[in-house]
Amino acid sequence: MQTPFLLQFINLLAALLLLIAFAMLTQRRILSLINLFALQGAVLSLSTFVVAFSTSQHHLYYSAGLTLLLKVLLLPWLLHRLIRKLNVRWDVETLINIPTTMLVGISLVIFSFNLAAPIAQLSEGLTRGLIGIALASVLLSLLMMLTRRKAVSQVVAFLSLENGLFFAATSATQGMPLVVELGIALDVLVATFIFGIFFFQIRETFDSLDIAHMEKLKDD
């Protein structure tokens, strides 16, 4: 049913996804970060489409279309609009210790491949090894959330985390039931709107989108 070509193509896309996750981890300019996020969405949508084609699961075509619409067009557009309105379009974030972050990232990838190894044994053909990559990109996005100090880049990390999860859902398990996927997409969309509201509230209150200002609440 599936040709080795398609199999290789999906593996290529998965590798691309991981590479983009690494690129996001070290990208300092907010504008480029958002573009990378859009690119990640495009790869995700394409890989979903290929999985749909090779397994002839029709509902995956809808998922691919939904991803294209939401993660490549709508969310990046919203984010672009937001950073233009907030005037942080050309902001550059100072990231400390990029080499260390990269090394931690690499060990996270090794860790997730190890963790996913017994599961990869179970799955046949197409999806083998993909769950490890999905887990790795989820953990890389988590790492990115920890290392960032700007509200906008934390949100991009959050959305990219969701991309990793979506990749796990579509490629490794060939799609969750459509009603669940729609629900998840709705939640992500609403979350992005709320994040947008938050940006303005934070800026109004703290005069900056730096969350270093927001470390006042302590237990004493």
Binding site: E162, L165, A191, I194, F198, I202, T205, M214
Partner: peptide, 22 residues
């Protein structure tokens, strides 16, 4: 909309968002 409440809400959103993603 106080600084403290915004910080609390942001923390709640990010931490629970990550948690629930897992």
């Amino acid at each position: 909309r106080t600084p403290a409440s915004l910080e609390a809400a942001w923390k709640y959103f990010i931490l629970c968002g990550v948690g629930i993603a897992l």
